[in-house]
Design a protein around this nucleic acid. Structure first.
Lengths: 236, 236
DNA sequence: TTCAAAGTGTGACAATTATCATACACTTAT
DNA sequence: ATAAGTGTATGATAATTGTCACACTTTGAA
């Protein structure tokens, strides 16, 4: 079965080459070690971040210590809130999931760019529109078909973002632990582990050196009643 | 206890008076009867909608017939996707929840406005930013503290959007059925009903002529571990 | 004013998901 | 080679939530 896999659909591609160049010019690249916090919830949202290399997770911690991960961003992704010309605070926290090089764009600079080159604000609007749709369909996926559907949809998203087709199936270029998956779907490590075992028994996935290989993408799609959303929003 | 209630925080107030006026000028007001669809999921997102009067719900139906309601909008709310200068399709459906008068703004007109008066795009960006944060914290509320937490947070949002303080407690100016509430939190009518009965026993709510009265807002806040988000995003 | 439709209340039970406990595998540092 | 740390696998059990069934109440239109 011919399964198209389009990995590395990064959200900077929403910007025109010229505009992306402009952003690169004004940003200041900073290093973050794995585990370092890029911004905390509650912080003023006055910067945007562009990932030159590495990986970042955006998440929220519950009082009882559980985390909910909203997104993982990697090379060539832009993230942060664009609370343009007005104060807003982050509701989620961003943390380096791997060592990162991150280009930081100050609100001020973005505002200036938008004023002197108003077409770039169109690109920002597109970008926000994608981010917004991403969150909406993620919510749908997490609520519609139980934790099983939520996990299936997450595996599909992983295929899109980190999948590499091999003769054995689709391998991931990045490993996520059972806990990582649990935090992505608002569940527990144990539940995720059991669901993965079940998927293995059913032949939908297998393991290669401890990491997941997707064998039957279509089967995963039936579990979450996949609607074949555009790939730039069906991502991790 | 002094409970501040700030209802009718409508998202058009994000726009400056002048800009809101501009929008009003270019929009075409149309009537929608209760139950009529304003746009279907899958439709091209090429219009924005401004509610002159009435109420609209934005939702998604699962294959098994269950609905998930993302938001209710009412007078002075602006809704729709702003997929500026590029094609996108709606992922949710919008339907008149009451008879409505709705101002329709064509993508083309918005684009023209933005080009000739670039500061208005700032307002659109702010608006999108709010909508996006709304969805994020809604997701948090639906996933963190079980269905009970989800219901409590929804009642709090209702207080902000439709609450009116009286000597008996906070009454709602609009009624939502148990099913409506269930669709807002991704649950079932029966479960919502049982949770409401429990809240009644605990004295957090009561009933007045069949409609819910909030007696103890603080108690609801403890259930969902309320973080006192800004009122423009803590709404229905 | 009466009847159908829509909404509510609740029991009994099933399914899903979380929690707690424990064993084991695998890596890495000493 | 050993111990500590991290991650996986799985049983037993509890808690949460959904499903089905049915009675009752309220509402609104003929």
């Amino acid at each position: 079965m011919d399964q198209k896999i389009n990995h590395a659909i990064k959200n900077i591609t929403i910007f025109s080459k010229k505009h992306a160049e402009l952003l690169r010019k004004v940003m200041t690249v900073t290093d973050y070690k794995k585990g370092e916090t890029i911004y905390w919830e509650g912080d003023a949202a006055e910067k945007l971040y562009f990932i030159v290399s590495g990986m970042v997770k955006v998440f929220k911690s519950a009082d009882d210590g559980k985390d909910l991960v909203l997104n993982y961003f990697s090379t060539d992704d832009l993230f942060g809130e664009l609370a343009c010309f007005g104060p807003t605070n982050y509701t989620f926290t961003a943390e380096a999931a791997k060592d990162c090089k991150i280009g930081v764009l100050k609100q001020r600079e973005i505002e200036l760019l938008m004023l002197e080159k108003s077409e770039i604000s169109i690109d920002f609007i597109k970008w926000m529109s994608y981010m917004s749709q991403y969150t909406q369909i993620k919510m749908r996926d997490l609520l519609f078909y139980g934790k099983n559907g939520a996990l299936a949809s997450t595996l599909i998203r992983m295929v899109h973002s980190y999948g590499k087709e091999t003769e054995n199936g689709i391998q991931f270029t990045t490993n996520f632990t059972n806990s990582d998956l649990a935090q992505l779907i608002g569940s527990t490590r144990e539940t995720v582990n059991r669901m993965l075992q079940a998927l293995k028994k059913e032949g939908a996935i297998s393991y290669n050196q401890g990491s997941i290989v997707v064998k039957d993408l279509d089967y995963l799609k039936t579990i979450c009643h996949c609607e074949e959303c555009p790939l730039h929003i069906c991502r991790l």
